[in-house]
């Protein structure tokens, strides 16, 4: 029993009978300040609670009345829209045959890296960018190769196949190109382009001709459209050789001979000759040789 607490006060005469409570009147300035502070604190807490409750109530009411704006996305979400944007001619139908998005049930299931890699392996496509546009759209941006020449290739079975050559020297089979577009592209002849498994050609061999075509297409688009065949028969890989000549056959001028360098100078000379011909109403130019540096040899019909 000795272990019981010594200070046990259960008697009614204990000091605990003194009533302890907060008094309404303040005895001193400090207590007054303390009370004001406590009341302000209590008031601010109550105000905060009231504001929060009003806010919750208003929000609930707003959501109830405008539920159409609050579509809460629940996953899994199926892919409903696939949009393609391309810099070239590839059609949605053709692209759908290449990538099947319908196999995916969920937006988040789609492996964008895999699809991008698959599309970029297609020879007409230069680069691809894909992104998810929630809730249900996949956006595919395609950057296609731009063709500047056509090339007829004889395969092992001696069957002719048409290939296109892009500005940066890529050789590929074109898809979805209209006849109008294809007819404007000149053929390239006299070059044995050896295609590897990925249809890539030796780009070094084509560098000079692509440069000529690009400058011409930019400065003299009508002349470029009139070019039908670009012949490499007299072209040697060593472009310093005086004997290397690019022969272009076209509608306006039957045959034009270019050196494989200094294209700007040659095209200026060509422009001067054409202008002279128009001004002097000469017969049609049959052949023009621009390989003589400061001189031009012109043969009229």
């Amino acid at each position: 029993m000795n272990r019981k607490p010594n200070f046990d006060l259960s008697n009614e005469n204990s000091w605990r009978r003194i009533e302890q409570k907060g008094f309404s009147h303040s005895i001193s300035e400090s207590v007054r300040i303390l009370k004001i502070k406590k009341r302000l604190k209590q008031g601010s807490i109550i105000s905060l609670i009231i504001i929060t409750l009003i806010g919750i109530g208003w929000s609930a009411n707003y959501i109830k009345n405008n539920h159409q704006y609050f579509n809460i996305i629940k996953f899994p979400q199926p892919v409903r829209h696939i949009s393609y944007r391309t810099t070239g001619v590839l059609s949605r139908e053709w692209l759908d045959t290449q990538v099947d998005f319908s196999q995916y049930e969920d937006m988040m299931e789609i492996n964008l890296v895999q699809i991008k890699s698959k599309l970029e392996k297609l020879d007409q496509i230069k680069s691809v960018s894909i992104k998810r546009n929630f809730p249900d759209e996949i956006q595919v941006y395609i950057n296609e190769l731009e063709p500047i020449m056509r090339y007829v290739y004889k395969n092992n079975n001696n069957v002719k196949e048409l290939y296109l050559i892009s500005m940066d020297g890529q050789v590929y089979k074109g898809h979805n190109y209209s006849k109008d577009i294809l007819n404007k592209l000149p053929f390239i002849k006299g070059v044995d382009i050896i295609l590897d498994g990925n249809n890539n050609a030796n780009i070094d061999e084509l560098n000079s001709i692509t440069e000529l075509l690009l400058i011409t297409k930019k400065r003299f688009p009508r002349l470029y459209d009139s070019w039908n065949v670009i012949s490499y028969n007299d072209f040697k890989l060593n472009i310093i050789s005086d004997n290397s000549v690019i022969v272009i056959k076209g509608d306006i001028i039957n045959e034009t001979l270019f050196m494989p360098y200094n294209f700007d100078l040659q095209l200026n000379n060509l422009a001067n000759v054409i202008q002279f011909s128009i001004n002097n109403n000469t017969p049609k130019i049959n052949r023009i040789d621009l390989t003589l540096n400061d001189r031009v040899n012109v043969k009229f019909d």
Partner: peptide, 9 residues
């Protein structure tokens, strides 16, 4: 007018 403070055994 008196109150107990402690009961000490």
């Amino acid at each position: 007018d008196r109150v107990y403070i402690h009961h000490i055994l």
